[in-house]
Amino acid sequence: MALRIKSYWKDDERSRSLPEIASALAYIAWRIALDKAINLHCERFVYDQDAQRLAVIQEYLIFLVQIADRLAHAELNEADRRTLIVEFAKNLFGHVQDNSQDLLGPGDYGGPFIARLDARSADYAEFQFTDDGPSYALLRHLGHEIQTIMGESDANRWVIDQVMDKDGWEAYKHFARAYRNLFE
């Protein structure tokens, strides 16, 4: 089943602030990341526990923050880009915290997510992003991080290929389309 995401504003005559756009992007990113985590399960990859599934969702969110930053770099000045990405990350922090608490119980889940986002940002900075989208190496890094989370059991041996060749690219396409639509 195809993922359907509303990425147009109801009242398209009204201008939106960067924090409003960032909030919408965070919701859309969460939906995409959740869809891709579910798709891995549908493709017969195995999660050992709910925390592992949430970690995969977070890896997709980190990837989508990198995509947003690269798209914003091409279209916004430095101050607006920083505002958008910081607000986007803050909203994702809320999604991660709320959904993790609902599933795993009380605890600090958003803080470790932001720490991982900061660490991964340095890793992702090494990879190319062109007008055509993320490089194969960037997608491979996403696949590697998800493979690390899921383990290399017989059931999950090929998860890196699924992420690199299909799911990561689809996540990028959905998110980039929504990003552009929200700025129109």
Score class of each variant (00 low, 15 high):
M1I: 14
A2L: 13
L3M: 10
R4D: 14
W9E: 07
K10T: 14
R14E: 15
S15V: 12
S15Y: 07
E20D: 02
I21E: 08
S23C: 08
Y27G: 14
W30C: 03
W30Q: 08
W30V: 05
R31M: 12
I32M: 05
L34S: 15
A37G: 09
L40W: 01
R44G: 00
D50W: 11
D50Q: 15
D50K: 14
Q52C: 12
R53D: 00
L54A: 04
L54N: 08
V56W: 02
Y60K: 07
Y60G: 03
L61T: 05
L61I: 10
I62T: 14
I62Q: 05
L64N: 04
A68R: 00
R70E: 06
L71T: 00
A72Y: 05
A72N: 07
H73T: 15
A74W: 07
E75Y: 04
L76R: 01
N77M: 08
A79P: 01
R81P: 00
R81E: 09
R82M: 13
F88M: 04
A89G: 00
L92W: 05
F93G: 03
G94L: 08
Q97R: 02
D98I: 11
D98Y: 09
S100W: 06
D102V: 07
D102P: 00
D102F: 10
L103Q: 15
L103T: 15
G107E: 01
Y109F: 09
F113T: 08
F113C: 01
R116D: 13
R120W: 03
S121N: 10
Q128P: 02
T130R: 02
S135T: 01
Y136H: 12
L138D: 06
H141A: 11
H141V: 02
G143W: 00
I146C: 02
G151L: 05
E152N: 14
A155I: 03
I160R: 14
D161W: 10
D161V: 14
Q162W: 00
V163Q: 06
M164Q: 15
D167E: 13
Y172E: 06
K173C: 11
F175A: 06
F175D: 04
A176L: 09
Y179P: 08
R180Y: 11
R180K: 14
E184H: 10
E184R: 13
